[in-house]
Design a binder for these strands. Structure first.
Length: 555
RNA sequence: UGGGGAGUAGUGUAACGGUAGCACGGCAGACUCUGGAUCUGCUUGUAGGGGUUCAAAUCCUCUCUCCCCAGCCA
């Protein structure tokens, strides 16, 4: 069903893996892992990595673990673990093993001891400030720690005492003994363990020393028998350290491969920035429908399929890039055009009185549920003398390219009748309050027996038979395509427009996700609907809108 | 000015010495009971200079530009 470019994806990582398989490396196994830190919510950038890791495993009949990189107790919480599990499942993936770096703490400790005994690690008494001062700069080598040549036995004893809780947080570290003059900062005797008297969401107060990422990550990969450790570009110069630990330890050595992380226009995809948006209240939470988090996209109405499809289309490469938000929108439209049932909803109601239509008559009009899929059938829509149409669908003095209703003009009410505008009623301020129209009874169903054409078809709802609903129109969170460091000042003030008094056709009462004809795709916000005791819909994405474009370009 | 990466249409991504292609966007047109969808066409690209070769996005070389690294974060 999918176009070739993503039904059979290929990229430099898959090519490398295919080569490894061919050469018999790793007994021709493929085992990947998705390794989030439980200190925040997953976003669509993570989805790129999730899809890559899980799909590569599946394509090669391999395994993929979900591993929580939970080595920093002060920033991590069980709440995030749950949210991450839920999001990965929602995206459509099942992990083979659920792992936690914290489950390896004992083993990690033993490996650290091995490094100490081999003279490859030492306990350093320098303070964090002193370590920073002695690290050197990008162009100058660092200085060796005065504790660098401590005897192995002494290091071992000290390390045991660190574990036993005899020292204050931050007072000592265990450092790898590598090369203080390396051009690669990561190799200048990096810290392996730090003292943190903090309780961990899984291990409680069992530990007061915690391994650093560089040590924990490669060893965790190794313990799990990972074959290909895929990560983002900023870890490229950590790879020599990744390799160093595993080589020194002489244990299973996965291959780290780096690829570029995802960026998308008009949003931000860094955990730091997303946290700021949440904490400063610029959005309502991690699951605000404007957020690029998986929970936000889910609440907005995006489907896992659309997101997976998007991840397949953007490709994998080593070049930093920013994908156009229009591609994500294309992916959800593409899916929903085929799958979403159509309904009518009027966002900004303008009343029409059809003067020659019987006052007490309600007709049930047949409407097609999805013109793209006959099997989805038809439904009845009530029609009456008074209906609402969209205010934007009427202009008293229409410009040349405006095809919709205007005084004296005939248009079609979708599936119902042709109507002609005969009068415009205004209030004291000159605001249009109501239109008077006549209808042609011969056009019932929306076709005229004499074959005359109308230039436009409008959606509508019956005034007495429609329901009230709140509709939220979402736009890009940021008004600039690439928000910078002052991203908060670049928030789009119109990213959310709430319309409290919309009118929807009765059948919409029990619909979750659908198209509002001529407007866009919408999704019921279950949380707020029950809170407000009326239907609340989130706009997932607009339909492509040629008229809006004409207006925008002044044409 | 240390180390590590990357430069292909507006954007993203292919082409692995042999016709620079695909997708999104944009622009036109056809069709249409959604100004939707669908269909058709068009536009625009190898960062730059040298070299090797019958042939270079691809190999060599010099230059330029951009990204990452100086957490006891991941």
């Amino acid at each position: 069903m999918l176009p070739n470019n993503h039904s059979n994806p290929s990229d430099f990582i898959r090519e490398t893996i295919a080569d490894d398989l061919k050469s018999g490396k790793n007994e021709s196994r493929v085992h990947t892992r998705f390794p989030p830190e439980p200190n925040g919510y997953l976003h669509i950038g993570h989805a790129k990595s999730i899809c890559l890791n899980f799909e590569i495993a599946r394509e090669n009949k391999g395994l993929c673990n979900l591993r929580f990189d939970d080595t920093n107790p002060v920033t991590e919480e069980a709440e995030y673990v749950e949210a991450i599990r839920k999001d990965v499942e929602w995206l459509g993936f099942q992990w083979d093993n659920e792992c936690y770096a914290s489950d390896y703490f004992e083993q990690l400790y033993d490996y650290a001891v091995r490094l100490i005994k081999n003279g490859k690690a030492y306990v350093c008494d320098l303070s964090p400030e002193e370590v920073r001062e002695q690290r050197g700069t990008l162009t100058e080598p660092g200085k060796e720690s005065p504790y660098r040549n401590r005897p192995a036995d002494e290091n071992f004893l000290l390390f045991e005492r660190m574990r036993a809780g005899e020292f204050a947080s931050g007072s000592r570290t265990l450092r790898a003994k590598i090369d203080m003059s390396s051009g690669n900062m990561n190799m200048r005797d990096p810290v392996i363990y730090r003292i943190q008297h903090a309780s961990h969401h899984r291990t409680g107060d069992k530990w007061c020393i915690y391994p650093m990422y560089d040590f924990a990550h490669c060893v965790s990969d190794s313990i799990e028998g990972i074959t290909h450790s895929l990560c983002s570009l900023e870890f490229e110069d950590h790879r020599p350290l990744y390799d160093w630990f595993l080589d020194e330890l002489g244990i299973h050595h996965p291959q780290q491969i780096e690829f570029a992380r995802l960026n998308i226009t008009n949003t931000v995809l860094s955990k730091r920035k997303l946290i700021k948006l949440v904490e400063e209240g610029h959005v309502t939470g991690w699951d605000d429908p404007r957020m690029p988090t998986l929970s936000g996209l889910r609440r907005r109405g995006y489907t896992p399929e659309a997101i997976r499809n998007f991840c397949g289309r953007i490709g994998i490469a080593k070049r930093n890039s920013t994908v156009d938000m229009a591609l994500l929108e294309y992916c959800i439209r593409e899916e929903l055009n085929k799958a979403a049932p159509r309904y009518m909803a009027v966002l900004n109601p303008l009343k029409i009185v059809i003067e020659n239509y019987p006052a007490d008559l309600i007709e049930e009009i047949d409407a097609v549920n999805n013109p793209e899929d006959e099997k989805m059938g038809i439904r009845k829509v009530p029609f009456s003398r008074e209906v609402y149409i969209e205010r934007d669908d009427f202009m008293e003095d229409p410009p040349k390219k405006f095809f919709r209703l205007a005084p004296g003009r005939e248009v079609r009410l979708r599936y119902a009748y042709y109507i002609t505008c005969t009068d415009v009623i205004k209030d004291g301020n000159g605001e249009i309050t109501e239109l008077r129209c006549t209808y042609d009874p011969a056009t019932k169903g929306g076709d005229s027996p004499d074959g005359r054409k109308v230039k436009s078809t409008l959606h509508w709802v019956s005034a007495p038979k429609s329901l009230e609903a709140e509709v939220r129109l979402y736009d890009h969170l940021f008004s600039v395509s690439e928000p910078g460091d002052d991203f908060v000042s670049q928030l789009n003030p119109d990213s959310l427009i709430t319309l409290a008094s919309c009118r929807i056709e009765p059948a919409l009462e029990k619909i979750f996700r659908c198209q509002f004809e001529r407007l866009g795709y919408f999704c019921l916000d279950k949380i707020d609907s029950s809170l407000k005791n009326k239907p609340v819909f989130n706009r997932i994405v607009t339909l492509k809108d040629a008229w809006a474009k004409i207006q925008k370009t002044g044409g």
